[in-house]
Structures are given as C-alpha cells and as structure tokens.
Amino acid sequence: MADLRERRGSGIPGILWIPAGIALAFLVLPLVALIGQVPWAQLGQIIATSDIGQSLGLSLGCGIAATAVSLVLGVPLAWVLARSSDWHPAIRRTLRALVIVPLVLPPVVGGVALLLLLGRHGLIGQFLNSWFNIQLPFTTPAVIISEAFVAMPFLVLAVEGALRAADRRLEDAAETLGASRWMIFRRVTLPLVAPGVVAGAVLCFARALGEFGATITFAGNFPGVTRTMPIAAYLALETSPPAAYVISLVLLVVSVGVLFALRDRWVSGLSS
C-alpha cells in the first residue's frame, strides 16, 4: 500500500496546483498583511496595559462551552438528520434547511432574533423573567448562547456528512450480536464518525471564537462579562488600530494553538 502511494507521488494533476496556490494565498495573505502591521516594539506594553487577558479568557471559556453545548445537542441532531431517509423528502429537506438558517442569517439579525426569543420580553424570555427571575441578555451565558447559535450548524453538517458516509452494515452486525441501540451508538457509530465529530467541533469552536454580531446584540459588551476578543478588537480599531492588530494576533495564535493541541490529543487518542 505504502509502496503504491510512493510510486504515484502526490497524485495531484499539475493543473490543480495553480488554483490551489491561489486559494492558499487568498486565505493566508490577509493575515500576513495584518501581522505586518503588528507593532512588535510595543507588543509587550500593549498586552500589559490593555485587558487582553480578560477578554481572551472569556473568549476561550465561552468558545469551549459553546462547542460543548453544540456537541451535546448537535451530534444527536446530526444523527436524526442522517437517519431520516424513511421520512417524507419535504420534511427532510425542510429540517436540513432550518439547520442552516443561522449560517445564512446576518449575525446581528441573529442577535436580534435571540433577543426576541430570550430577552426579558421575548417569547420564552418573558417566562424565564417572571417565573425564575432569569434575565439572559448582557450576561456571560448569553455569550455562550449566541456563539452556539451561529456555530452549531457547522458541527451538525460535518457530523451528518460523516454519519451518512459511515458503513451501516457494522451497526447491523452489532445488532445481530445483541447490542442495544444505545450501545451501538456509543461503541460502533460514534467511533466510526469520530473524525467527522472532531472536524465539526474544530469548525464550531473556530466560528464561536470569531463570533461578533450576535454576541454584541444579544449579550452586549462589558469588560469581564461579555467583552470577547472580537469585540475588544473591533472597539480598539476605533481609537488605536495597533492595539486591534495585537488583539487579533493574540486571538489567532491562541486559537491555532488550541486547535492543534485538541486535534493531536483527540486524533492520537482515537487511533491508539
């Protein structure tokens, strides 16, 4: 197998290298331009004087929480969507379209929608307010809700794709051996689609980290409570662009680091 691969080389047709190179440059060059503007000499001073640490902690905490919420709720939803082949096609298509809605909706509009649902006069929020005295807007949980709202579809789509590609005969085999449905899901299906779940979680986490519009509308912006890194960067851009570049750089470095660490851990854990 390895020999065959070696003989074929990369197997990429030469003509594809050009668009692939342009695509990579297109994705990476804006970051290069941004990093080129980072005031390295003042880097330490800007990090020390601004409350980047506080925003970063909040961003990472909320991003991880939003990813956890998306995993707990999104994987079962993906499973339902993937195994809905017996349902009427119209229902199936509608369900799938509904899952994508948060991706299409401008995030600020998503934030308004969340206010209309969960705000103190919202469809559900009014009861949270009058029965339990819970007011979600302008709180840290509201940041997690905003991020999960915009990021969960990435996870659902990735996991659903993996589930549909998975070989169902393995589940059938487990069933004939007497495994319960829950056991099949846990011991057969989930390990089968694990790479899809990891990929989905990574996408979901990345999207949650960058979330801005829904957060600022629904959760607001207050230091230490709801001011995440993207909001800090946006506001810094108003008065001191160099600080905004530094915030972006820190967010970039930390998020890439977290993604690498998680991926290595998860993927190696799975293959061993």
């Binding site: 308004v112 206010l115 209309l116 705000g119 103190r120 006069h121 807007p137 302008f138 600022i216 509308t217 607001g220 912006n221 207050f222 709801t226 001011r227 909001i231 946006y234 506001l235 108003e238």
Partner: peptide, 20 residues
C-alpha cells in the same frame, strides 16, 4: 453603571425599542 457598552447608536436603539 451600564450593563452594556454598545459599538454604535443603532445597537443601543435596537435594545431600547425591544425594551431590553
């Protein structure tokens, strides 16, 4: 003692008009 520091006036007005 603000609950939120909005990035622009329109965001503030959205939150006011929704009575949030």
């Amino acid at each position: 003692k603000p609950d939120t520091l909005v990035p622009d006036v329109k965001t503030a007005l959205t939150q006011v008009s929704l009575d949030e």
